[in-house]
Computed example of a mutant assay.
Amino acid sequence: MLPPFSLSTLQLDCALALLLIGLLIGRLINLLTYRLPQLMHCDWQLQAREILGLSTDAAAHPAAPYPLRDCAHCGRRQPLQHLLPLAGLLWPAACPACGHRPGGRNGLVEIGFALLAAGLGGWLGWQLLTVWLLLLAAGLLTLSLIDADHHLLPDALVLPLLWLGLLLNQGSLLSSPSAAFWGAVSGYLILWSLYWLFRLVTGREGMGYGDFKLLAMLGAWGGWQILPLTLLLASFTGALVGLFLLRRRGSPAGTLLPFGPYLALAGWIALLLGERGHLLLPG
């Protein structure tokens, strides 16, 4: 279980080390956010060509994602320093060939994850629990960014994290084995039921199957006890953002908003609070 948070036990050495490590992980998150959807789209196109009986030789394949050092827009090789964290903030990181420059979001992701890693390190110190929570946080952030950009929650990320949560909780890392199991089952079934209820009433799809798996994954990590707070926070936040978009940006009423980022953020908060509200307890 997570220990109570206290400033008196803040471990600065671990916090500073994980601040630097968090910058590197944040850079990897940005790279994965760009590359994984490309891989998925290439794979889907290849499968479609096979189903349609079209040629699938090397010449007919969709353009494969570029190596990490290549520009995602033109495919030209980039200077090595463009791979380093905060490249767009520390020096001009535009592609020399096409002039494409990563948006400011990249720097915010790297700084934000570095601060999160430092916070976890200062709170939990050097232990395996810190590593597992950093891995979960990196997965949730990557999934949120991909869902925000492409309305996708890749099974390649969600399912390994779901199984990892179940395995770790066999040793009661964050929840009991039974609570983790029923958290995964009930997390999936709750949203699956809401999906079909909404579809029967309106004839439209209100969310995707990736959302079911994401909530199941959160339940596998934190147990079924975190699911009510997760759903409450995610629904409230999503509704606020939806109203903002309707009023400020003039988005149509039927615009679909990705639910994954709100589930991920709400699940992370509920996981840290736990059953007793760990972050709110005095040391």
Score class of each variant (00 low, 15 high):
195 Y>V: 04
51 I>E: 11
283 G>D: 12
282 P>F: 11
137 A>S: 15
259 F>E: 00
268 W>R: 09
173 L>Q: 12
253 A>I: 14
189 L>G: 04
244 F>G: 11
243 L>G: 05
283 G>I: 09
13 D>Q: 14
174 L>R: 02
240 L>A: 14
144 S>Y: 01
35 R>W: 06
244 F>C: 12
209 Y>Q: 10
267 G>F: 01
267 G>N: 06
158 V>M: 10
245 L>E: 00
215 L>M: 10
159 L>A: 12
263 L>S: 06
234 A>F: 08
232 L>R: 00
262 Y>W: 15
8 S>N: 14
193 S>P: 02
108 L>P: 03
41 H>W: 08
123 W>F: 07
259 F>L: 12
117 A>G: 10
185 V>K: 01
226 I>N: 07
251 S>W: 11
142 T>M: 15
3 P>T: 08
39 L>W: 06
237 T>D: 00
72 A>M: 07
75 G>H: 09
241 V>Q: 05
191 L>N: 06
81 Q>G: 02
202 T>A: 03
125 G>P: 05
231 L>D: 00
47 Q>K: 14
204 R>Y: 05
210 G>Q: 04
30 N>M: 09
154 P>E: 12
231 L>T: 00
76 R>A: 15
161 L>S: 08
127 Q>C: 15
161 L>A: 10
222 G>W: 06
83 L>T: 03
162 L>P: 12
169 N>K: 09
178 S>R: 04
89 L>T: 01
136 L>S: 06
256 L>A: 13
226 I>D: 01
234 A>V: 11
56 T>Y: 03
96 P>L: 01
235 S>R: 03
114 A>I: 08
236 F>P: 01
34 Y>K: 04
196 W>A: 00
118 A>G: 15
78 Q>K: 09
166 L>T: 10
255 T>Y: 00
144 S>E: 08
42 C>M: 06
140 L>Y: 09
168 L>T: 11
222 G>L: 05
43 D>M: 09
138 A>K: 05
80 L>R: 04
242 G>M: 03
75 G>A: 05
101 R>A: 13
263 L>I: 05
90 L>H: 05
87 A>C: 07
196 W>P: 03
12 L>M: 14
207 M>R: 02
20 L>H: 08
93 A>R: 01
120 L>K: 04
159 L>C: 12
213 K>Y: 04
44 W>M: 12
235 S>G: 14
224 W>P: 05
162 L>S: 07
249 R>Q: 14
33 T>G: 15
260 G>M: 00
102 P>A: 02
49 R>I: 02
140 L>C: 01
279 L>F: 02
124 L>A: 06
113 F>E: 11
260 G>I: 07
45 Q>I: 04
21 I>A: 14
148 A>S: 13
